[in-house]
């Protein structure tokens, strides 16, 4: 989780990824942030994430994002 939080803060500095529970639903990160986050995750974890996975439900919390990465890792 620490590695993920570091990546997320690199893309969206100032966002409290450790505690926020509605990152998308509250507009804290937007759809462009999501694309850029995924770009970084694919690079950092060597995984492929499909554009159909870029939905708010996968990005509302750091735990949601980690789960997406883990699914991509198989």
């Amino acid at each position: 989780m620490e590695k993920l939080i570091g990546i997320l803060k690199g893309v969206c500095p100032g966002v409290d990824f450790e505690n926020e529970k509605a990152l998308c639903d509250d507009g804290i990160i937007n759809s462009l942030d999501i694309v850029l986050i995924v770009s970084e995750l694919m690079d950092a974890y060597g995984v492929e994430i499909d554009i159909d996975d870029l939905v708010p439900e996968n990005f509302n919390t750091a735990e949601d994002i980690l789960a997406l990465v883990e699914r991509a890792q198989g």
């Binding site: 937007n30 759809s31 462009l32 999501i34 694309v35 850029l36 770009s39 970084e40 995750l41 694919m42 690079d43 950092a44 060597g46």
Partner: peptide
């Protein structure tokens, strides 16, 4: 990975 975009 690592791409740049402004399209969403």
């Amino acid at each position: 990975g690592g791409m740049a975009t402004n399209f969403t």
